[in-house]
């Protein structure tokens, strides 16, 4: 899409800066408030696990598929975990069909790091025959509607889909690997949560809307594995943070992350019972 469509109204920018100095936002939220988050799981029967997440008007859907495959040569005793993310052309007037652009690739890679690097799934438990047969867990996330903070929406959907996912139980016999037709839960160890913050003027806010992202100078996403451990980070956009701002971002990511982790676990548990 032409860059003409991305021009920000001066009036909007001025209003946004004006209210932020007063500690509130144009939609009435406080600086560290998320928009309402809803999480539904078990919506795609053909997937092993699935989740739809809404943060305000941002909407994403994630599906987990577990299949057999061959391990990587350097990790013969480990299964595979692959996260992809795609901004579908139906999600925004500015998304285009075709191969993913650099923003979409960054989105997918940040989500992938936040999940894989945290050790969310014990990959050794996904090994069937060392060096030969392992389970591959694909988490594919599709963005359905864009209104800012795709990083967190993609991350929550991926984690919620994983938590609600099962995997087929395989038997290793002399003839090879056999599907028993039974399913067992996926060995999920942790609930990594990403928190995205942006800098507008001198103010740091969480969970930016598309309007807020259009005037931000810099963005930072920090994922935490639990209340003591951070497991992924990504600074984005052409602008910088001071050292104090980085520290504040880390603290916020941990405290806010704990809050959202509880909420996410609760809604996934709820989804399971309904099934």
């Amino acid at each position: 899409m032409s860059k003409k469509s991305l021009v920000v109204e001066h009036l909007k920018r001025a209003q946004m800066l004006d209210v932020l100095t007063k500690g509130v936002r144009l939609d009435g939220r406080g600086l560290l408030d998320y928009r309402p988050i809803t999480i539904e799981t078990g919506i795609i029967e053909k997937a092993n696990g699935s989740a739809k997440v809404r943060i305000g008007n941002t909407e994403v859907i994630a599906g987990v598929k577990v299949q057999t495959g061959a391990p990587f040569e350097d990790t013969p005793d480990q299964g595979l975990l692959i996260v992809t993310a795609e901004v579908l052309p139906l999600a925004s007037a500015y998304a285009e069909p075709g191969p993913p652009n650099e923003d979409a690739i960054e989105l997918a890679r940040v989500a992938d790091r936040g999940i894989r690097e945290s050790g969310v799934v014990d990959l050794k438990e996904l090994c069937l025959v060392k060096g030969k047969n392992v389970l591959a867990v694909f988490i594919d996330v599709s963005v359905l509607n864009v209104d800012g903070n795709l990083f967190d929406a993609v991350s929550y959907a991926a984690v919620a889909a994983l938590l609600s996912s099962t995997m087929p139980k395989y038997e290793v016999t002399a003839e090879g690997v056999k599907d028993t037709g039974k399913t067992i839960p996926l060995p999920v160890k942790l609930t990594p949560i990403s928190i995205t913050m942006v800098l507008i003027g001198n103010t740091i806010i969480v969970d930016p809307t598309l309007d807020e992202e259009s005037v931000m100078t810099a963005r930072i996403t920090i994922a935490s594995a639990d209340k003591n451990t951070i497991c992924a980070g990504q600074k984005g956009n052409p602008g910088g943070f001071t050292e104090e701002q980085v520290m504040l971002a880390i603290d916020t990511a941990i405290s806010k992350g704990e809050e959202i982790r509880k909420m996410l676990k609760k809604s996934v548990g709820h989804g399971k019972k309904q099934k």
Partner: peptide
């Protein structure tokens, strides 16, 4: 979507 089919579909 990759998860829409019985076997995962290439995106």
């Amino acid at each position: 979507t990759p998860f829409s089919t019985d076997t995962r579909k290439n995106p």
